[in-house]
């Protein structure tokens, strides 16, 4: 039984790492800031989700399991918020440029 659990944990950990790698690949393959953010937020969240799922069966108590889930939730909120902030900054910069006004960075 424990062997099966360990195998599932291993598969989930590998899946998580693969998704993190794909998310990083997005930084290189996509050319615009916003499409890169799409790759980083969504794919990395999934990667972290798999890693958290893999760690859950090995947790010594319910509280520490919740702590790991909490890490995932806070990372989700943080990535959604930072993605939104970067997107807003990019948008306002683009608007400034298209309006023809000069902007100093």
């Amino acid at each position: 039984m424990t062997e099966i659990v360990q195998m599932v944990q291993g598969v989930l950990l590998i899946a998580g790492c693969v998704f993190f790698a794909i998310g990083t690949l997005g930084l290189f393959r996509f050319s615009e800031t916003l499409t890169r953010i799409h790759a980083l937020t969504k794919v990395d969240n999934l990667g972290l989700g798999f890693v958290v799922l893999a760690l859950l069966p090995g947790m010594p108590s319910l509280a520490s399991g919740m702590k790991v889930v909490l890490i995932w939730l806070v990372a989700l909120v943080a990535s959604a918020t930072s993605a939104h902030l970067i997107a807003r900054a990019v948008r306002s910069q683009e608007r400034g440029r298209s309006a023809g006004s000069e902007h100093h960075d």
Partner: peptide, 27 residues
């Protein structure tokens, strides 16, 4: 939300891994 975010991750990963990079970004 969890179901959809899994779909979201797989969707972006699929686009990234396909050689033609099928995206058509816009606002």
């Amino acid at each position: 939300f969890i179901g959809r975010s899994v779909v979201a991750g797989i969707d972006v990963a699929r686009r990234l891994l396909s050689p033609s990079l099928p995206v058509n970004p816009g606002y």
